[in-house]
């Protein structure tokens, strides 16, 4: 069942290309703007390394939160989601499939953005890239669990997709703090400290948000 749904979700994205196009272009534009800004402020390489994590997570938060609700719009259009429920499929299967699709899209674009920003700022990142990949996947799991749950809420509001950042970002703070702390660690020390408090916090919030989201999703989409 999940395979069929995942195929449908990815096919929807391949056909419409909306989320990826919006997300990737926004990331690219923000990357260029940040690179230009950094370049014109004459920071030395050491300072650039310090500011790099802030930039990368800012770009991530901004571009992903604006584009992620797009992927759910085709579920609302024609009430297709109701059609899925009428086949007797359970809400959590739909949630998992949506979550996986979002994770794939967000993670792919985000990792590309890291490489792009690093090369624009001539910051060496390739040696520690796998650390970034691990960190990014953990952040993206928490981020997508929460945004997959909150997207239907925001789409049903009068602000449509624009309500999403307002309710999503405050809840993301713990994950973002951990992400900033850990990516500075990677930048300055070259590796990820798996025993640090920030890493534990990140894991704890991943688990909490995933568990809460999968259990609450049926309340959001069903009546």
């Amino acid at each position: 069942m999940i395979k069929t749904l995942l195929h449908k979700d990815l096919l929807l994205e391949i056909r419409s290309k909306e989320t990826v196009a919006l997300f990737a272009t926004l990331s690219l534009l923000l990357t260029v703007i940040s690179a230009v800004g950094i370049h014109s402020s004459f920071l030395n390489p050491e300072e650039v390394r310090k500011i790099f994590p802030v930039l990368i997570w800012l770009i991530f938060i901004f571009s992903s939160t604006i584009s992620i609700s797009k992927s759910f719009e085709y579920e609302i259009k024609n009430n297709a989601l109701e059609g899925l429920f009428l086949t007797g499929i359970s809400p959590w299967t739909i949630f998992i499939s949506k979550l996986l699709t979002n994770i794939i899209i967000v993670l792919a674009v985000h990792l590309l953005t890291i490489i792009l920003l690093a090369s624009f700022l001539t910051t060496p990142i390739l040696e520690s890239f796998h650390h970034y990949a691990i960190l990014s996947s953990l952040v993206v799991i928490g981020y997508c669990s929460l945004s997959t749950l909150l997207t239907p809420i925001s789409l049903s509001s009068r602000l449509k997709g624009l309500l999403l950042p307002l309710i999503l970002l405050p809840l993301l703070f713990p994950i973002l703090f951990a992400a900033l702390e850990l990516s500075s660690q990677i930048m300055l020390e070259g590796s990820l400290d798996l025993g640090s408090l920030a890493f534990t916090l990140l894991l704890v919030f991943d688990v909490i948000y995933f568990t809460a989201a999968i259990n609450l999703f049926s309340f959001v989409v069903h009546e």
Partner: peptide
Amino acid sequence: VLLLILLGMLLLRAFG
């Protein structure tokens, strides 16, 4: 952060 979370809840109430 708590203040911002509560603000988000108030906004949902207002625009939901």
